[in-house]
Design a protein around this nucleic acid. Structure first.
Lengths: 190, 190
DNA sequence: GTCTATAATTTGATAGAC
DNA sequence: GTCTATCAAATTATAGAC
């Protein structure tokens, strides 16, 4: 055997990482197998020894990318729910996140493509998204609004990325930040 | 002249309408010129007598689609801000909207593709989006949160479309509806 | 104004050498 | 496991007939 054990797994993770960045930046469907492999310093022929099809890569990408977001959320240093959420909101609703899709959350970038993908991929997306939701429901001060808060963050980054003016990008994310903070400060008296 | 005056403009609007539905349903980049023209009962050769390029169609599509959403918002029958917003939230955050992207708002469907498009298209998107924002800022009870409310609605439909389970789709949009209504009921005491 | 035909690329995927 | 070479299909766009 000319390659070490574990080499293939390592290479696969490498492809997933560079492909994830590329897909978030320029879209999954807009990027060819050639493009993904080029980003991993390989040629397209080698692709199919790691994935059975381009669709297979998409599924693996959704899984690993949402997994990466969840890992970040799990490393949130704060204990009390208020501070925990405040930390995540500020990280997510930032100009840095808006301007660097390749390093950010997969949801604003690829959720629309997931909604058009086959049942297998949507299933995978749903499973991983539920994991993320549970983390928010456990740590956020108001579990009933965990989905709403996630939606708010995702939608804000999505729209802010679509506009050109930097001032407007800031206005959009700051409006969302202000609304979420107002909601939480008021104690969410239903 | 074998064709009536105004025939071309009419045909162009027809192409925009069917192309808009198709693009919202299956993505703009995923659809070929052939596909768009087939939906309008024409062949791809005729496309270029209406648009200079596929990119030109995208720009026209963004303009007409956001314009169509704004028209809907302008036809909201309610006068007082509270009822006006309540009406729009219920329309937007509905299972019907989640399940029929081809008939719905363009933002959850195509905003990610806009964020990857050229400056010309983003400019057009920004201009139209600002018009929509102003309508919300004028009619919604809290202008400072107009962007936040738009982001909330867009993000909710986006994520709800990505998951498979209908119960979960409902949970997502209902969480957002509940959060927005709580916020407004509490008088938005900042 | 729309058609058919076609040019030039790009795409997802396979085969075989090393 | 990765490479080069290659294929069949699909893509954007143009040309010329009606």
């Amino acid at each position: 055997m000319r390659y070490k054990a574990g080499y293939k797994e390592e290479k696969r993770r490498e492809i997933l990482k560079t492909s994830g960045e590329l897909a978030k930046k320029q879209g999954f469907n807009n990027t060819g197998v050639d493009g993904f492999m080029h980003a991993a310093n390989m040629t397209s022929g080698a692709f199919y020894s790691h994935f059975s099809s381009k669709n297979d890569l998409f599924k693996a990408l959704i899984e690993s990318e949402i997994g990466a977001s969840i890992q970040q959320w799990e490393m949130n240093p704060h204990q009390d729910p208020e501070s925990w959420l405040d930390f995540e909101m500020n990280r997510y609703l930032s100009l840095l996140h808006v301007q660097h899709p390749e390093k950010g959350c997969v949801l604003p970038s690829l959720a629309a493509e997931v909604s058009r993908a086959d049942a297998d991929i949507k299933q995978c997306f749903e499973k991983e998204l539920q994991r993320g939701y549970k983390l928010f429901a456990q740590h956020a001060p108001e579990p009933d609004f965990a989905w709403a808060i996630l939606c708010q963050m995702v939608g804000s980054v999505l729209l802010a990325r679509g506009v050109q003016d930097e001032r407007l990008k800031k206005d959009i994310i700051n409006s969302s930040l202000a609304m979420l903070k107002t909601l939480l400060k008021n104690g969410i008296a239903k």
